[in-house]
C-alpha cells in the first residue's frame, strides 16, 4: 500500500529514470567507440578496457566496504568511469596505468568527495590528467592502429603550432572513422557522435553543452586560421574534443544545473580548449579546459539560478 501512494511536494511528474538506466545508456553509447578501439588497436585495447573497468568497480567496492557504506557498484557509474578512462588512454600503455588511473578516479576524485553526485570533477577526466602529468612519456606515446603498433604523433601535432594543416597529416576520412594515432576511444569522431546522438535521443544529455562546446572551438579556430575550413575541421575531428564534449563535459555532478549556466559552461570549455591548443605548451587542451570549468560550476550555478516565483527584486533605497 505504502508503495502505491506517494506523498511528496510538487512537481508530481514521475519517470522511471534512475542512475542505473542513465549509466546503462552511457555505457551503450560508448559501445561503438569501444568496439572501434578494439578493432583498430587489437588485443592491447581489449585488455586495457577490461582491466580499467574491473579496477574501477573493485575500487568502489573496496572503499565502500572499508567506510561501511552501502555498496553501490550495481548502479553502473564505476563501470562507466572505467570505460571512459580506458578510451582516454593510448593503446600502448602498460597495464598498470589503467589500474592506477581507475583507483585514483574512484577513490580520490569520487569517493573522497562523497561518492556519486558529489564529485566536483569528472573522475575519468581527472584521472587522465593525473596520468598525463605523472607519466608524460608513456601517456603521449601514441601508436598507429594495427598489430605492429608504430609510435606516431597525434593529428593535433600537425595543426597545433601552426595556422594551417601541415603536410603529412592523415586524411579526413581516416580522421572521421578513427584510423589515426591517439587515445583508444577518441580517434573515431563519427562513432562518438553516433553515441552522442543516442544519448540526446534518450534524453540523458541535452545537446546544449556538447553543441556549444564544439561550436565555440570551431569559431575560435576558424578566426585564428583566417577562415581556413580545413584547419577548423582538423581541430574538431582530432584529439579528445568529441569524447570530452559529449561524454565528460556533460557529467551531471560536475556541470551546471541551470539552462543558462550550461551555456556559460560550454562556451567557457570551448574557449579554454582553443586557447590551450593554439597558444599553450600542450597540444591538447580539452581535458584541462573541462576540469577548469568544472571548478567554476558552483559559482555559475549560483549566479544563474532562476528567480523563485513571487520573489521581489531588491529595492535600492
Amino acid at each position: 500500500m505504502s508503495n502505491r501512494l506517494i506523498v511528496s511536494p510538487s512537481p508530481h511528474l514521475r519517470e522511471n529514470t534512475t542512475t542505473k538506466t542513465i549509466m546503462f545508456d552511457v555505457a551503450i553509447a560508448l559501445v561503438p567507440a569501444s568496439i572501434a578501439s578494439i578493432f583498430f588497436f587489437k588485443t592491447p585495447a581489449a585488455m586495457i578496457l577490461l582491466i580499467s573497468i574491473i579496477s574501477a568497480v573493485l575500487a568502489e567496492y573496496v572503499v565502500q566496504k572499508i567506510r561501511k557504506q552501502p555498496i553501490t557498484i550495481s548502479d553502473g557509474s564505476a563501470f562507466v568511469t572505467g570505460q571512459l578512462l580506458a578510451l582516454n588512454l593510448p593503446a600502448s600503455v602498460p597495464l598498470w596505468i589503467p589500474v592506477i588511473g581507475s583507483v585514483f578516479a574512484i577513490v580520490v576524485v569520487k569517493q573522497m568527495f562523497g561518492g556519486i553526485g558529489q564529485n566536483f570533477m569528472n573522475p575519468a577526466l581527472a584521472a587522465r590528467i593525473m596520468l598525463t602529468i605523472s607519466y608524460t612519456d608513456r601517456m603521449t606515446q601514441w601508436v598507429e592502429p594495427g598489430v605492429d603498433a608504430v609510435s606516431t604523433a597525434t593529428p593535433l601535432t600537425f595543426a597545433s603550432d601552426f595556422t594551417s594543416v601541415q603536410s603529412g597529416a592523415p586524411s579526413f576520412v581516416d580522421l572521421a572513422i578513427g584510423n589515426i594515432g591517439g587515445s583508444m576511444g577518441e580517434t573515431s569522431a563519427i562513432l562518438l557522435i553516433i553515441g552522442g546522438i543516442y544519448l540526446i535521443y534518450r534524453g540523458v544529455i541535452s545537446v546544449k553543452i556538447p553543441g556549444l562546446f564544439i561550436l565555440t572551438v570551431a569559431v575560435a579556430t576558424l578566426l585564428y586560421s583566417g577562415f581556413d575550413i580545413e584547419y577548423m575541421l582538423y581541430h574538431l575531428l582530432s584529439g579528445s574534443l568529441m569524447i570530452g564534449a559529449i561524454y565528460m563535459a556533460t557529467d551531471y555532478a560536475s556541470s551546471p544545473v541551470t539552462p543558462r549556466g550550461k551555456i556559460y559552461f560550454a562556451v567557457g570549455c570551448g574557449l579554454l580548449t582553443s586557447v590551450i591548443r593554439l597558444f599553450g605548451a600542450y597540444a591538447e587542451g580539452v581535458g584541462f579546459a573541462i576540469l577548469l570549468m568544472n571548478t567554476t560550476v558552483p559559482l555559475i550555478d549560483r549566479y544563474t539560478a532562476p528567480k523563485v516565483f513571487g520573489e521581489v527584486e531588491k529595492q535600492n533605497a
Binding site: 598498470w96 592506477i100 580520490v108 593525473m130 605523472s134 607519466y135 608513456r138
Partner: peptide, 15 residues
C-alpha cells in the same frame, strides 16, 4: 618504479 611526477609538482602538494 615508475615515478608519479604529479606528486613532486604543485597538485601533488595539495593531494
Amino acid at each position: 618504479y615508475p615515478s608519479a611526477a604529479i606528486m613532486i609538482q604543485p597538485p601533488g602538494a595539495f593531494l
